[in-house]
Nucleic acid binder design. Structure first.
Length: 881
RNA sequence: GGACGCUUAGCUCAGCUGGGAGAGCAACGGCCUUACAAGCCGUGGGUCGCAGGUUCAAUCCCUGCAGCGUUCACCA
């Protein structure tokens, strides 16, 4: 590789090449036999159907930062990758393909269909993996797992059997959310509520006492009336005392149903009379149970009406039936008002079809006790949620958790390891295939056709991927994992279920920390969506700006507890930072001789000059702040610290300041300067590497003969003791800024040299100016700094802390303007003077404030006084002219 | 309805246990200074949502209010 760099960065020239290098040299491989302390992250497995979006990009960038950071800090890092089979989502995709081909899953049958899904998975399931590589993810790809591979299937079966044997998994007829399109039950979490414009229909049921009176019930779902088995009133409702003990007649089907009394009926709402349909409404189901009502169904699994007694409705779609029922009631003069109503309707989260509450025989996990254990673990600190604002939400949800419906009536997924004997009805649950009934010996056995909820297998992910149920070395070394990084949107779907399963199955919480990050939105805070056309495609972005730029942008914007508002503009801005690093390196490389480039920079502390010591102190401070930020997962702070350090301190100041030394002709002087610069770059590359891995690896290879940057030591333990020198340089920077300010304000051409008069009011600065005058002169383009006399004509003056600088201009300065400017400055100072002066006279303050605060304020006050005096003196001088 | 969060410069936001109001972008003025115009130098701009309270001291802690947002539960 050539050491010469172009002046503009082109990430595509090196990113792929670098990644290939990492792969071939097995940099990311985690060794279970290593003696280093383990650091483990399991990736939230993306769906095999997925394509990389910004959510993944953020999620994986943060995980990669943590992985690389810990590698640099001496940990044996395992970032465990994998993908999720995503039951319903994947099945839907393949089903659509079949329909396009003019066939269907039912036509080809279960076995062929599953074969087909596997084929699809082999062909396109690795898309997302390849996309993660583009981002630079340092996963141990040799350990890539899939939720349906053999090992993980064993895990699933083992855990299922364990929980079944402990009585925590049971089978029951219960009200579930049924998707009539996907033809499966889904869990409560998988139902999304959407506000919908609808109508409230008032229906009249004749009272069964020959009086000709009727009761009026209100419903949004008239089509369910076929399955009504009661109408309910509140026993305390004055209006309906006459209905107690009576019954009513369901019109059309002419079935008699009782009037029952139940507290759940709200006397304030509607007519105070509720139709009860236990089979198609969760609340009514509860009422039905308490009153022992029959629970006939009138809607089948496909959403079609089935009532044996009203043929004209049979087979109608539920919405068509609704219209027809309303019409029929109208014909019978039993229709009351129809009132428009906005309410929330549950939809399937995979296909948005309206959910039908349905009673069916399903498998459930009793999670109450497991939830308690998880809560305990968070409360006692075994697990920590970051940011902790999620704690309450977590507790609240866990305390109200309901049993988890885990069976799905689809084909793609882990088939439930339960077997039924057709002869004696015995149910057997087993890891191994059952061929013979354990009770009656019959071989008339069939396996449960339902599969498990996708989230059941992902709940086991932190240990199933590491080898469970085998007690592998990997499992021993890397479980429990260190931190889980994911979006808060799957806290309940996934995170809490991993917590419960980890504690239950492994007896240990699956991770120590849970870092929940926010969502990525567009620059105005809107959700990105194809229909809005505001989607930023990470792959396109990587192509144009490089993975490093995308990563750095996401990281620096990832403040805790707030959504990320991303724009291409921002990415471009941070691409410029990458370019800055590139050019700074280019500059240093140009000035290094070949010998220097063969080795890592070693500092000879005795030979360093002031600015060298200053930049080293700046480096040290920055790295320490990064280390601190990283322990709190404050990624944005860490990135910002490095950004400021590298660009402002190192590039804008240090590299500018050493230029004269590089061109002085003195080889020794040059070597020390460039060696320090090289040292700082090397350390900066390591410090930046977790955030922007590609360019740092690339450049590190140019500066040193190291094979890779990935295992260098993170520079968080630097300990230079150059406080005095650093202070001196800091003062010089102040003075330089003052001079630059005069130049800028008065439009003095940068190329034009000037004379500066310097007057110290703080004697310490006299030493400084003597020592550092060369540096100041160079960088501020000053011909001479005059300290032994005052200017003899009017000069522009800037008052700093402990000094003032004056510049005589070629053209006469406008004395009026200058006076006005100084008076304005004096006014601001007077304000501060009053604030601090008042404080220091306040006895309460002096008595109660901490000593160091008072000390600081005193210094500040003196500084203000001194500045004011200098300004006043200057004003007197100006006004006398 | 419950819970949580947000409100700081024109925009997007930092500001972690109370004691100096900051960054990036945008704006404006000036620079082709041989690493970088994807750059350099400089400048302006904020009663830190409103009203109280605690404190010697509040952007920060407490209470109330307003606006916005997220989430959970959903009444026929």
């Amino acid at each position: 590789m050539s050491k010469v760099l172009q002046s503009r960065i082109n990430p595509s020239e090196y990113e792929n090449e670098i990644y290939e290098k990492w792969l071939t040299s097995k940099i990311f491989h985690a060794d279970e036999k290593s003696s280093k302390p383990p650091f483990t992250i399991v990736i939230p497995p993306p769906n095999v159907t997925g394509s990389l979006h910004l959510g993944h990009a953020l999620d994986c960038t943060l995980q990669d930062i943590l992985s690389r950071y810990h590698r640099l800090n001496g940990y044996e890092v395992l970032w465990q990758p994998g993908t999720d089979h995503a039951g319903i989502a994947t099945q839907n995709i393949v089903e659509k393909e079949l329909i396009k081909e003019g066939t269907s899953k039912n036509e080809i049958g279960r076995e062929k269909f599953i074969e087909r899904v596997w084929k699809w998975k082999e062909e396109s399931g690795n898309n997302i993996i390849n996309q993660l590589k583009k981002l630079g993810c340092s996963c141990d790809w040799d350990r890539l797992r899939f939720t349906m591979d053999d090992g993980l299937s064993d895990s699933v079966k083992t855990v299922f059997v364990k929980l079944y044997n402990e009585g925590l998994i049971y089978r029951s007829n219960y009200m579930v959310n049924w998707c009539v399109r996907c033809n499966t039950a889904i869990s409560d979490l998988e139902v999304e509520f959407a506000e919908t414009d609808d109508f409230m229909y008032h229906l009249r049921y004749p009272i069964n006492d020959g009086s000709g009176d009727y009761v009026e019930v209100a419903t949004t779902r008239p089509e369910t009336f076929f399955a009504d088995t009661a109408v309910a009133i509140n026993a305390n409702d004055e209006r309906h005392q006459n209905l107690k003990g009576k019954s009513v007649i369901l019109p059309i089907v002419n079935r008699v149903i009782p009037v029952i009394e139940d507290d759940f009926v709200d006397t304030e709402f509607g007519t105070g009379i509720v139709k009860i349909t236990p089979a198609h409404d969760p609340n009514d189901f509860v009422v039905g149970k308490t009153h022992n009502l029959e629970m006939p169904q009138c809607i089948d699994l496909n959403g079609k009406i089935t009532v044996g007694t009203a043929d004209e409705f049979d087979g109608l779609d539920r919405y068509d039936a609704r219209k027809k029922v309303v019409e029929k009631f109208r014909e019978l003069s039993l229709l009351g008002e129809i009132v428009p109503l906005k309410h929330n309707v549950g939809k399937c989260y995979r296909c948005s079809t309206t959910i039908e509450p349905m009673i069916s025989l399903q498998w459930f996990v009793d999670v109450k006790d497991m939830a308690k254990e998880a809560v305990k673990s968070v409360k006692n600190g075994d697990m920590r949620i970051v940011p902790s604002t999620w704690d309450n939400t977590f507790y609240d949800w866990m305390n109200n958790i309901r049993d988890w419906c885990i069976s799905r009536q689809i084909w793609w997924g882990h088939r439930i390891p339960a077997y039924y004997c057709d002869d004696c009805n015995e149910i057997m649950v087993s890891v191994d295939t059952v061929t013979k009934c354990s009770k009656c010996g019959s071989s008339n056995i069939r396996q449960e056709t339902d599969v498990l909820d996708t989230w059941f297998s992902s709940a086991l992910w932190p240990f199933s991927t590491l080898g469970f149920p085998e007690e592998t070395e990997t499992l021993k070394k890397f479980y429990p994992t260190s931190v889980l990084v994911t979006g808060f949107d799957i806290l309940f779907f996934w995170v809490v279920r991993m917590m419960m399963m980890g504690l239950k199955v492994m007896d240990k919480a699956p991770f120590k920390d849970i870092y929940l990050h926010a969502l990525v939105r567009d620059e105005h805070g809107n959700k990105m969506s194809k229909s809005k056309g505001n989607v930023i495609d990470p792959l396109v972005t990587i192509e144009e700006y490089g993975a490093d730029a995308l990563r750095f942008t996401l990281t620096i914007l990832a403040a805790q507890g707030r959504d990320i508002k991303l724009s291409v503009n921002r990415i471009e801005g941070y691409r410029n930072f990458i370019n800055k690093i590139w050019n700074a390196s280019r500059f240093v490389l140009m000035n290094c001789d070949d010998v220097a480039l063969e080795n890592k920079a070693e500092l000879d502390l005795s030979k360093l000059v002031y600015e060298d010591k200053w930049i080293l102190m700046q480096l040290e401070t920055a790295c320490k702040k990064v280390a601190k930020a990283m322990t709190n997962y404050s990624f944005n702070e860490a990135a910002n610290e490095l950004y400021q350090f590298f660009w402002l301190n190192f590039c804008d100041f240090y590299l500018e300041i050493i230029k004269p030394r590089l061109h002085s002709g003195d080889e020794d002087e040059k070597r020390i300067a460039i060696n320090t610069a090289k040292y700082v770059i090397e350390k900066s590359m390591i410090a930046l590497h977790p955030f922007i891995p590609f360019i740092t690896e690339h450049l590190y290879g140019k500066f040193t003969d190291a094979e890779t940057i990935c295992f260098e030591e993170y520079p968080s333990n630097l300990d230079f003791k150059f406080d005095d020198e650093s202070f001196m340089v800091q003062s010089a920077i102040d003075i330089i800024n003052s001079i630059r300010n005069i130049r800028g304000e008065h439009n003095i051409a940068p190329s034009k040299g000037i004379e500066v008069f310097f007057e110290a009011t703080d004697p310490k600065l006299n030493i400084m100016i003597e020592t550092l005058s060369k540096m100041i002169k160079n960088i501020a383009k000053v011909d001479d700094i005059i300290t032994d006399r005052k200017p003899d004509t009017e000069a522009v003056t800037v008052i700093g802390t402990g000094y003032k600088v004056m510049v005589v201009l070629d053209d006469l300065i406008n004395i009026e303007d200058e006076i006005a400017r100084l008076e304005k400055e004096l006014k601001t100072l007077e304000k501060d003077h009053n604030i601090y002066g008042g404080k220091l006279k306040n006895e309460n303050y002096l008595a109660k404030a901490k000593a160091d605060i008072i000390e600081k304020d005193k210094e500040k006050f003196e500084e203000i006084c001194s500045k004011m005096k200098t300004i006043k003196d200057t004003l007197v001088g100006l006004k006398s002219k």
